[in-house]
Write a protein that binds this DNA or RNA. Structure first.
Lengths: 241, 241
DNA sequence: TCAAAAGTGTTGGGATTACACCCATGG
DNA sequence: CCATGGGTGTAATCCCAACACTTTTGA
C-alpha cells in the first residue's frame, strides 16, 4: 500500500478498504477447589467447519457493539453472572487462521469461581472443564490462544492479587496455596507461603473451620476487600521460590 | 455506505454477520541519544476527519493480509528498514471510537534507534518526534494508545533487555542509564546501575571513548549478541530503586 | 587551575530460603 | 491410639540500597 496515495483521498478515506469479520473468543479459567485444579472451559463445536471438535467459545462482533461488550455478553449468557473478571489477551489475525472465511479474532480471558454451577454449564452447552495441563487439541489457533492465556495468567498472578476472582467467598490456605501451585506449575513451601500471604494483610481469618479434608479442620479465610482494592491500585508483587 | 454488500459469505456460520473495517496503528518509540530523551513519533493527519491534528500512523488491513504484516509494512515503508522490533499492544474496538466509520484498530508498538535518519522521516511525512512526557492531544483514542504503550514499555524493559532495540551500535553507560531513567521516569543511582548492568554480562566494553559530553571521555560499550539472545529466551528481570 | 563528567567499593538491613517437629481429632 | 493433614519459628544467606570521593582533561 502506498501511504501517500491513501492520504490524498481525503473524502474517501474509508472507502475502498476491505471490511473483515471480527470475532471474540474467550478463555475461561476456573479453579476447582475440591480437586484443587486450575481448569479451562472448552466447548464441543456445533457448526462446520470442525463440528464436533473442541474449541473456545466466542461470537462475532455485531454492528454497533463494543468489542469488550461482545466478550462479556458471551460470558454472561453462559454463566448468568455479570461483572466477572474479563481482560483482553491478544488479537489473532493471520489471513488464513480460519479456513472457512477470513475472521480476525480478539481473544479475552476470564476468571470465575467454580462452585456448584459447574455441572449446569456442562449440561447446557456441550462444554467440559479441562485441567490446564490436559488441554486437548483445539480447532484453528485456539490452542495457541490457551497457551498465551496461561502465560499471561502467570504474569498476572504475580502482579495482582488475582485469587479473589478464582476462589469462593471462604477458602482455606491450602486451597489458596494450591491455586498458586497450579498457576505456577511448581511446589511452594508451606511455611513460607503462609508467612508471605498473611503478611500482605489480604486475608481475614474466620472463626469457622473446613473439616472436609482433615480431622483437625483448617481455618477458613476471606479476602479483605479494602486491602485488595488498595493492592489493585498501588501495585502488588508476590513471588514464590 | 453499506459494508455488508461487499462481502460474499459462502457458509451459514459466517453469513449474516457484520464485517468491519480493521486498521493497525503504530506507536513508534525512539531514543534520542544526544538529547537523552525517549521519543514517540507522531504525524499530522492529512485526511478528514481531524485533518491537521496529531495522530499515530496506521493503515487498513487489506484483504488476505496478516495483521502483523499490515503493521510491519507501515513501519518498513516509513523507515526503509526491515526487521524492526514490533509487538502487538492491544485492540481498540469501541463502536464509536472513530467518528467517521466503524473501525477496529489493532495497536502495535515498535522500537527504533534514532540516529541521523530522524530529519529524513520528518521531511517525508509531516511527522515529529515528541518527548514522551510532552505528547500533544491526539485524534480519536490515540492518546490512550500511547499511554498504554508507555505502560507496556515499562513492564517490558524490566523483563527483557530491550535497550538493544533503542540504542545505537556503540553507546556510553550514561546513555544506557538515561534510557532506563526515561522509561521509568525516575532517577537511578549511578554506581548501582553500573554494577547491576555490567554483572549481567550483556555489555562488552570497547577501547574507544566518546568525548562529546566530557573532557575525560566515556568508554563506549556494545551489546553482546549471544548474552542478549540467551536472556531473551531464558528470561530476564532487572529493576532499579 | 578548575569545572564537569567518568568512574569506583563497602556496609547494614531486610528479605528470602531452607528446613522439622508438634497439634488436634475422627475413626 | 494412630493416621492425616494443620499449623508453627529460626538461622544462614543473599540481595539491594545508600552513600562520597578520586580521576581525567580541555578550556
Amino acid at each position: 500500500m502506498n501511504l501517500k496515495k491513501t492520504m490524498v483521498l481525503s473524502n474517501t478515506y474509508y472507502y475502498g478498504n476491505h471490511p473483515i469479520l471480527v470475532a471474540v473468543d474467550n478463555i475461561i479459567f476456573g479453579f476447582d477447589t475440591v480437586e484443587e485444579r486450575l481448569k479451562v472451559l472448552l466447548f464441543k463445536r456445533l457448526v462446520e467447519p470442525y463440528a464436533g471438535e473442541w474449541s473456545l467459545i466466542g461470537s462475532f462482533v455485531q454492528e454497533g457493539q463494543n468489542i469488550d461488550d461482545a466478550a462479556s455478553s458471551v460470558l454472561e449468557e453462559l454463566t448468568g453472572i455479570t461483572g466477572l473478571y474479563l481482560e483482553q489477551l491478544k488479537t489473532y489475525g493471520n489471513a488464513d487462521r480460519d479456513t472457512g472465511e477470513r475472521v480476525i479474532s480478539i481473544a479475552y480471558y476470564s476468571l470465575l469461581k467454580l462452585e456448584e454451577d459447574n455441572a449446569q454449564l456442562r449440561d447446557q452447552h456441550d462444554s467440559f472443564w479441562f485441567d490446564i495441563s490436559e488441554v486437548p487439541n483445539l480447532v484453528l489457533d485456539h490452542g495457541q490462544m490457551v497457551k498465551d492465556a496461561i502465560r499471561k495468567l502467570k504474569i498476572k498472578a504475580r502482579r495482582s492479587p488475582i485469587g479473589f476472582e478464582l476462589l469462593p467467598e471462604k477458602f482455606t490456605l491450602r486451597q489458596f496455596k494450591s491455586l498458586y501451585e497450579q498457576i505456577y506449575q511448581a511446589e511452594i513451601d508451606d511455611r513460607n507461603f503462609r508467612k508471605k500471604i498473611l503478611a500482605t494483610g489480604l486475608l481475614d481469618k474466620l472463626e469457622e473451620k473446613d473439616k472436609t479434608t482433615s480431622k483437625k479442620g483448617a481455618f477458613l479465610y476471606t479476602f479483605n476487600k479494602e486491602k485488595y482494592d488498595e493492592y489493585l491500585s498501588r501495585g502488588f508483587d508476590i513471588q514464590f521460590h
